[in-house]
Nucleic acid binder design. Structure first.
Length: 291
DNA sequence: ACCGCACCCTGAGCGC
DNA sequence: TGCGCTCAGGGTGCGG
């Protein structure tokens, strides 16, 4: 689900509800590996603290709190971070969806997948973190506490240069797609935007990273910036679960050129888009346009 | 050090 | 309708 553009869109739109305010109360589900910090410990640490900033590191959201503490959030595959005022059918189960009248603006009620509910002081809405598959993460970091997950992250994909990618490629025996998905090489790229950027750059996802030229690396870096930047402009891709904090859908899914288009005509040459497993992920490409 | 794989979980969609 | 199967945009930890 959420890759860099979805996380960035989430950051921008949820920040006004959090930043500059104090946490008044939280409600959580029970202990699970979703909570790297246990719900009880999280409550003890978080309640009463003031949120001073909300940043993004790769696909992580990092809330900066008073006295130097940090709260780490990761949306995993199906995580949704949104305001209690959001209305969207994406926040409902298929069965609940089916029983709705066509023009309904369904109001979300916290369910068993809503693992964290944050009430801020003042009049604003609550903030909900819902995650059906529980691949998301919540972790409290005390002042000065290091974190391996953050330290591992490579250059943010919006900053990646072709030269940097080229140099990283030389030491590795994986495919170029595997390199783009490796968060320690470049942070923020997931399956969709890797496929989209490689299409724009004209490089097949299955190419050995070592055999991608410097020039092609430049093209890939440029394509990443373009694709990620454009997706942020349109509010991200809403392909299955992703929903912005206000409940709105992103727009980038309508601009996809290869992802999820298996068998459809390539928008450049008309050949059928192919799909196969590369780097353990379903990968989409045009065999004529990508070399 | 690097690489591929199993695994964490739930739900949707498919063929039968 | 219901069952069993496959698949899903992420990341970690393990053994080879």
């Amino acid at each position: 689900m959420p890759e860099l553009p979805e996380v960035e869109t989430t950051r921008r739109r949820i920040a006004p509800f959090l930043v500059g305010k104090r946490v008044e109360e939280i409600v959580t589900t029970g202990p699970s590996y979703f909570f790297l910090t246990s719900p009880a410990a999280l409550r003890r640490s978080l309640v009463g603290r003031r949120i001073e900033s909300l940043d993004r590191a790769g696909k992580y959201l990092v809330a900066g709190l008073d006295r130097g503490a940090r709260l780490l959030l990761h949306l995993g595959m199906t995580g949704q971070l949104f305001s209690s005022e959001a209305t969207s059918v994406r926040l409902l189960s298929a069965t609940a969806r089916a029983s709705l009248p066509p023009e309904a603006q369904p109001r979300f009620e916290p369910d068993e997948h809503t693992h964290l509910q944050i009430t801020m002081e003042g009049e604003g809405p609550k903030v909900f973190f819902r995650d059906v598959r529980k691949f998301g993460k919540v972790q409290w970091l005390a002042s000065g506490e290091e974190n391996a997950r953050l330290d591992r992250l490579g250059t943010d994909a919006l900053e990646l240069t072709g030269e940097e990618l080229f140099r990283a490629n030389r030491r590795r025996r994986v495919t170029i797609k595997g390199m783009l998905l490796d968060q320690s090489v470049t942070a923020g790229v997931g399956n969709i935007y890797a496929d989209e950027a490689l299409f724009i750059a004209g490089v097949r996802p299955g190419r050995a990273a070592q055999r991608v030229t410097r020039r092609e690396c430049e093209a890939i870096a440029l394509a990443l910036h373009r694709v990620l930047g454009r997706s942020i402009e349109t509010g991200g891709s809403s392909i299955s679960d992703y929903v912005a904090p206000d409940g709105s859908d992103g727009g980038y899914q309508d601009e996809r050129k290869v992802y999820g288009r298996r068998g459809e005509a390539c928008l450049e040459c008309g050949d059928a888009i192919k799909r196969r497993i590369i780097a353990q992920r379903s990968s989409h490409y045009c065999a004529r346009c990508q070399r």
